[in-house]
């Protein structure tokens, strides 16, 4: 197992997110975590990355228990993780080249020449070697995502986490990202965790799928198995139905009473 969450409890102030969550993510493949907004998908990535601490339980990444690490140890572990953020989070003051070079410069003492080689290799992988001198503000959404991807794999991590990698992209760019995640995962021998709400892309890319709802895993398995589930809450999410176990209406008092309470 690359990542294991053992009976994790987590809550934001008074809002509980997980109660005794158990989750195991295998090495080597692409694991896709799906679920509607607010079900705690991104929180999961923050727990794995050690940016949030669970109230109870523990998180083990690459055989290291995150809670037992001090800041140095945590930062050391993070060098083996890459993360693609939802809004790319490119450093706006640095060029494309410098963004990809950033983790390399910060963590190694390689010569300028070697860094240039490494960065060019990563940029070539995402097809943007020609754009290396552009600034992030000059990139389209799809290009920015690819640069962020190149940066996430700059240090050849063991694990890459993708937070909503398909959101806000046009169909062509989406296709490019789907293909890149697959290729990079297989070519570099990494493991990937993809958090997404895009069902089609998520299922097409996954080796293994977890479907979340309200802080719990409701379905897991291969994409085919998950797609064949009959659970109504999972079906509602997978088929994109407006009403179902997740109610269309926000909880309210009785409609007729509410409308006519003024006249009596």
């Amino acid at each position: 197992m690359l990542v294991a969450l053992n009976s994790v409890d987590f809550s934001y102030a008074d809002t509980p997110v997980y109660e005794s969550l158990d989750l195991k993510i295998p090495r080597g493949g692409i694991t896709v975590i799906m679920g509607p907004s607010g079900c705690g998908k991104s929180t999961l990535l923050s727990l794995i990355g050690g940016r949030l601490q669970p109230r109870c339980g523990n998180v083990v990444v690459d055989d290291v228990e995150i809670q037992s690490l001090d800041k140095r140890g945590l930062y050391h572990l993070r060098r083996r993780m890459g993360m693609l953020f939802q809004f790319n989070a490119l450093l706006s003051e640095l060029s494309v080249f410098e963004n990809v070079a950033f983790p390399i410069r910060e963590h190694t003492d390689l010569s300028a020449e070697l860094i240039e080689h490494l960065v060019k290799i990563k940029l070539e992988m995402v097809g943007l070697r020609g754009a290396s001198q552009l600034m992030p503000s000059e990139l389209s959404g799809g290009m920015a995502r690819r640069v962020a991807l190149a940066r996430a794999i700059a240090l050849d991590p063991v694990l890459v986490m993708y937070d909503e990698p398909f959101t806000g992209l046009d169909p062509i760019s989406k296709g490019v990202i789907v293909q890149l995640i697959r290729e990079l995962n297989d070519a570099l021998g990494m493991s990937s965790i993809v958090v997404t709400q895009d069902v089609a892309e998520g299922l097409s890319i996954a080796d293994y799928v977890f479907v979340f709802a309200a802080g719990e895993v409701i379905v897991e398995g291969t994409p085919e198995a998950v797609n064949a589930t009959l659970r109504p809450d999972a079906r509602q999410f997978l088929d994109g139905l407006p009403d179902g176990p997740v109610a269309y209406h926000y909880p309210a008092s009785d409609y007729q009473v509410d409308l006519f309470q003024g006249e009596s």
Partner: peptide, 17 residues
Amino acid sequence: LMRATQQLDAMEMMAVD
């Protein structure tokens, strides 16, 4: 803005304080 666009979070995840 670096905070709002997650640039600071990204640095933390790249193990840069």
